[in-house]
């Protein structure tokens, strides 16, 4: 097929958290599309709404306090928002799977690891336990767990963090999902293990042709894995473009700041953190929420709503004055 319909189409997604009188807009007007086999990297500081976005796709946001107030999430042509528990369960773990930040606490401590990998196969595919075990052992092999037959019956506390994350990945891959959500999959791991896990994810993606949304606060991780990048700030996507474009010519000051905070081995080794703190999501003003921390800011930034708009070919930015950045760097 030449016209590839998008696998996932998120449009105008708004998510609020309500506690007492306070309303936090965790996601505001989030829109993007993802094609089968591609990877979207979602990057931003903690609290920018990237994990909430991921969880909302699977209906995992506890409600209350979380509410989806607007938008649509179409997966393979079907709407996911508003599905009931039973409908969501048919998607979770089969069509869309998810891996989480902390593998150490993501596995049930009182179950053997292998049984947790094969559980999805037994529940969704109705496999008998022997077949499920054989399949799980094969999966463990695929994700690089040595002597899987023996380790199948071990408990999580006997495993290292890196091995547990491999187990989590095997668990997610069990039913061959078309979309894998990876929420900070390497943050809790040692630096050397991080690269192995990322390489594994890329390899699995090439082999199975699944799409992936990879959430990270680390630009380097995104650069290594993603085809496209969505930069999130204060619940909004502030820049959306191909990875190459974002790294070559960022069109939002926040992205520029994130790139500046990557430690580099060459040239300027100093880390340049973005000044200031992320805004309080309860008290957002009408204008650009990055205005207070932006070096290019002007009075207009604080009063004019900043929406995502095209600033170049297949390049979207929410900055009102992206030309200021080009002027500065020129």
């Amino acid at each position: 097929m030449t016209t590839t319909a998008p696998l996932l189409n998120v449009a105008g997604l708004c998510i609020e958290f309500r506690t007492g009188d306070a309303v936090v807009r965790a996601n505001a007007d989030v829109s993007f599309t993802l094609t089968a086999g591609r990877t979207l990297g979602v990057v931003g500081e903690s609290g920018s709404g990237k994990s909430v976005l991921c969880r909302s796709l699977l209906g995992l946001i506890p409600s209350p306090p979380g509410f989806v107030t607007a938008g649509s999430v179409r997966f393979e042509g079907g709407e996911l928002l508003g599905l009931d528990e039973a409908g969501l369960r048919r998607v979770r773990g089969t069509a869309i799977a998810m891996i989480f930040q902390n593998p150490m606490s993501g596995l049930n401590p009182v179950w053997p690891v292998g049984d947790q990998i094969s559980e999805g196969l037994r529940v969704h595919r109705g496999l008998a336990s022997r077949d499920a075990r054989a399949r799980a052992v094969a999966l463990m092999q695929q994700v690089g767990i040595p002597s899987p037959e023996k380790r199948y019956d071990e408990y999580p506390h006997q495993w290292s963090g890196g091995m547990l994350q491999r187990a989590m990945i095997a668990m997610a891959m069990a039913c061959e999902p078309r979309l894998l959500l990876a929420d900070e999959p390497t943050t809790a791991l040692d630096a050397t293990i991080q690269d192995q896990i990322l390489a594994l994810l890329v390899e699995l993606q090439e082999r199975t042709g699944m799409a992936m949304i990879l959430v990270s606060h680390d630009m380097a991780v995104i650069a290594e894995t993603s085809d496209e990048v969505a930069v999130m700030y204060a619940g909004r996507i502030v820049e959306l473009a191909s990875t190459a474009a974002v790294f070559r010519a960022p069109r939002h000051p926040y992205t520029l700041g994130l790139l500046g905070s990557i430690p580099r081995n060459t040239g300027d080794t100093r880390l340049r953190p973005i000044p200031g703190q992320p805004p309080n999501l309860v008290e957002l003003g009408p204008g650009c929420s990055f205005a207070d921390r932006c070096v290019f800011t002007s009075a207009e930034c604080r009063v004019t709503p900043a929406a995502l708009r095209p600033v170049g070919p297949a390049h979207l930015s929410a900055c009102l004055f992206p030309e200021r950045m080009t002027a500065a760097s020129a």
């Binding site: 699977l58 995992l60 969501l88 369960r89 048919r90 998607v91 979770r92 773990g93 089969t94 799977a97 998810m98 989480f100 902390n102 606490s105 993501g106 596995l107 049930n108 401590p109 559980e119 999805g120 529940v123 969704h124 989590m168 668990m171």
Partner: peptide, 11 residues
Amino acid sequence: DYIEVARAKGL
């Protein structure tokens, strides 16, 4: 966390 993982698994 492992309960959220279990939910994400579609149990």
